[in-house]
Amino acid sequence: MKIDVRHVTKRFGDFTALNNVDLEVKSGELVALLGPSGSGKTTLLRIIAGLEWPDDGRVMFDGTDALSRSVRERHVGFVFQHYALFRHMTVFENIAFGLRVRPRGQRLSEAKIREKVGELLELVQLTWLADRYPSQLSGGQRQRIALARALAIEPRVLLLDEPFGALDAKVRKELRRWLRSLHEDIHVTSVFVTHDQEEALEVADRVVVMDKGRIEQVGAPEDVHDRPATAFVHEFIGESLVLPITVQDQRVHVEGRLLPIDPQGVANGAARLFVRPHEIDVVAADGAALTGIVKRVHGLGAARRVEVQLSAPETLVEIDTPRNLPVEVGATIGLKPQRYRIFADAR
């Protein structure tokens, strides 16, 4: 099912959680809402679910108004951050809940319910836990049961709030691969919230980057990583080396010295230069606009991480260099950005 969010605004007292947000989720897509805490991503998810109501704007499911329907009627599968499993029910009863509370006319027979719950337990590979209580399960198991419970009502949309937030690193990696393959099997339109960029970039078809109640960029994982639309996205996703610069008459200056790079159409005034650590070249110090002293060299992989103390501006930056390039601690080197982005400072 297709979800349309149009001009949605939500305030909590003086705090604007969502500021005129527009978003389109295509049918069958797996979308990540990515942002720091307080960016409004969970609020947006809860508004789509019907657990929260916007002050302004519209939410459409397949072109029909969703806001006129309550969360009960929206047929949305919601997986809560802390799972919210019913603590006094067994795993089996938790999953069966959505089937048992249906109006009498639509309720399945007991045999059918058992069959369906059995199928879902198989889907999440936890058949052997049917008679346990939630308190007896591990975090990863609870998460999968919560997912099975949400899927039991055959939701038109699956919404997940920080689905892996409360898990340890290893289980997290396993579960997100599992979620990805599950999505490929069942293909239900899914939206999940996360503050972990790695998670968003690995799992989602498209990533929605949010900050301060606004959407900064929407795009495929490689888009938001390689072609960030704003300074915030560049800094938030992946590593960035950031330097304050000024643009004057189509020229870029660093601390008063000319940096021979293209200002990328940025207007005169203060701006910032963003470079990925692996997209900056080491050059001879003589004549280079950016020079610094190598403080530390470390790293065991294909690339080496080099910490450089720049002379102007006086700041410590980290860059990645190929292994075969000789860089010695204490040496003075020059740096030349190879690929970069320039964003004007907000005024």
Binding site: G77, A84, L85, F86, F97, G98, V101, A152
Partner: peptide, 25 residues
């Protein structure tokens, strides 16, 4: 309120939520 929210999102009415989730808890 998360368990109640979960119950409602699974289609339970207010009364069902109260008697099946809130009260037993």
């Amino acid at each position: 309120t998360q368990e109640e929210e979960a119950a409602i999102s699974l289609g339970a009415s207010g009364l069902q939520t109260f008697f099946r989730v809130t009260l037993p808890n």
